[in-house]
Design a protein around this nucleic acid. Structure first.
Lengths: 338, 338
DNA sequence: CTGAAAGCGCTTACAG
DNA sequence: CTGAAAGCGCTTACAG
């Protein structure tokens, strides 16, 4: 049996006894005043009967736009990107756009192939702008959590403010020897964390680790085995912080008595293990980025917001009850750089 | 300044001094034997110079296919779906397809709108087949972790075998009063877990909870406050198990001494908190589903695999060292139902 | 109120 | 070896 092809507007026209253009008119909802109500009803009935759905490829070609935005992420594994997606998808939906995610997982080696979709714009998070070069065609682009020095507009977190507050918190607790469990990934957001930390803790000791519990454990073991053992470990990511937490346990060290531990992101993991962390408003990041992209699509120049972060204090630095401090700039919702 | 339109194959043809069809021929790689090498080079140079990329909408319309598959998930928040994506994306890439994710987050209320893309097929995980009715047009579909009674081929886990092994483990430890922290979501995969558990523990006490740490905490609190307090809590999901773990802590109960706790999925959270759980091979689920979809696209009837699961024993049920037991059928990689 | 026609940018027979 | 032409299925002026 041959695969039956889906019905087209021509088929609907034939079934309803009208022209194809009338079908298009009616089903696009622009018919009032141009097609009689009875004809419109005939068309809708026929379309329903045949199970007609417009061919998106044809519509996309004709209109020159797709109302589809693609969110590109370096990995889909990190829960951080789920929040980015939700924020971006909400704004997209409010404006009649749909959002799809595309990831080229590091787990997949082989040449990078862009997706085959026709899209109107792209949001790319936590990566180098250059890594998008393999994409099929250039489209309006907003970069999230990425180097603001590129060509594309950016939406970022106030990482420097976050590190200011985080080190302030640790200093206030009396910590002076601080170790850095750094993400072993060469992207701006992590370079930024290292620079902001080193600016405030010039003698910080750093160990690098791929982002996983195991590698975080190993890096923390190296730091905690030093003769001048750090009294606090600043980790680039909550997953690394969990590994560090396990390393402390394995060495019989009390957290936070012997060693304080902090993460970054504030994902479920940090909450579950009560780890002090920097909360990055990921959902807001996604939302603001989508707004910026809509600006771009409308020919406007988007702002380049820098979103405030907050340090969420939990038991891994302070044995007393959780409380939250704002990072700095409570007077403004966020800052903008040009 | 007007938005410049991207170059088309016509522009490349003009620049190279050849016809548009020759451009298409050359850039599609089918030119050897039909176009001279020198002409081909001229075309490639011109294309490079203009930054030409074929318009995917036009290609999709012309070819009647897109080589794009869409993975539809009920939420993007659960790390389980990340693994499904990776498995499916790998197989897709191996066959020249690209995979995008589309989610209609529950957080977004308002009418469900399908995406606007032209796609060749769809993978839908952990949902009712009927909930896809709003999708723009019917395409070949494989359902994952979903009711095998629907029209579409399915790829599933051996949930019943998992529950057999899990209850066997708990029985062996002496547990008789078992509580069920059930996911308060009306989909097949959770109905299946409840049925499999009730078949083996007829007097199981159940409390329902939305999937989050907080709600899991509350449901577990209700179960653990009963006069006939369960000695084991089987949770439908690792997140719920974390909540249950916190409830036990809040009540001053020792885990696993006073109450054993198990989860489902085996995501990072379960590993970090050392919670005994049922490992669902999510990546394999995605891979097998993509293979089934490729079968469908090639006019073949795909198998309907049922993938084996395993119980990963950790400290939340057994204070001794971790060890892993296989669920049953070690002789076959998986089973298949017709 | 309705229909015939153009055209979006490709790919692929077909003609030369 | 190369080009002119058809056609994928829409939307939207345009003509009547």
């Amino acid at each position: 049996m041959p695969a039956e092809t889906p019905p087209t507007s021509k088929d609907v026209a034939a079934a309803a006894g009208v022209s194809q253009s009338t079908v298009s008119m009616v089903l696009s909802g622009k018919w009032p005043g141009r097609v009689s109500a009875s004809t419109a009803q005939k068309v809708r009935d026929a379309a329903e009967r045949l199970g007609y759905r417009p061919n998106p490829a044809a519509r996309n070609l004709r209109l020159g736009r797709t109302r589809t935005i693609m969110l590109v992420t370096p990995t889909i594994t990190a829960p951080f990107f789920s929040s980015v997606y939700i924020g971006a998808a909400r704004v997209a939906a409010e404006h009649g756009f749909s959002l799809v995610v595309f990831t080229w997982p590091l787990e997949l080696d082989g040449p990078f192939n862009g997706p085959h979709e026709a899209i109107d714009g792209m949001l790319a998070s936590s990566m180098a702008e250059a890594s998008l070069a393999g994409m099929r065609r250039p489209v309006p682009l907003v970069m999230l959590d990425s180097d603001p020095g590129g060509a594309a507009p950016t939406v970022n977190f106030d990482i420097d403010g976050a590190m200011h507050d985080l080190t302030g918190h640790l200093f206030a607790l009396g910590h002076r020897r601080i170790g850095h469990v750094a993400a072993d990934i060469d992207v701006w957001t992590f370079q930024c964390r290292a620079a902001a930390l080193e600016a405030r803790v010039p003698d910080v000791v750093t160990e690098r680790a791929a982002i996983s519990i195991t590698t975080g454990f190993e890096a923390a073991m190296r730091l905690l085995s030093r003769p001048d053992r750090p009294t606090a470990l600043v980790c680039d990511d909550d997953t690394l912080a969990v590994g560090a937490h396990k390393a402390a346990q394995a060495l019989g060290l009390d957290v936070p008595g012997d060693v304080a531990i902090t993460g970054f992101d504030d994902v479920l993991l940090a909450e579950a293990l009560e780890i002090t962390t920097v909360r990055l408003p990921a959902e807001q990041l996604g939302a603001r980025a989508m707004l910026a992209l809509l600006d771009l699509l409308n020919g406007r120049t988007p702002p380049r917001p820098v979103l405030p972060t907050e340090v969420v204090i939990r038991r891994s630095t302070s044995p007393t009850a959780p409380l939250t401090i704002e990072t700095g700039h409570a007077d403004t919702a966020d800052r903008t750089v040009s």
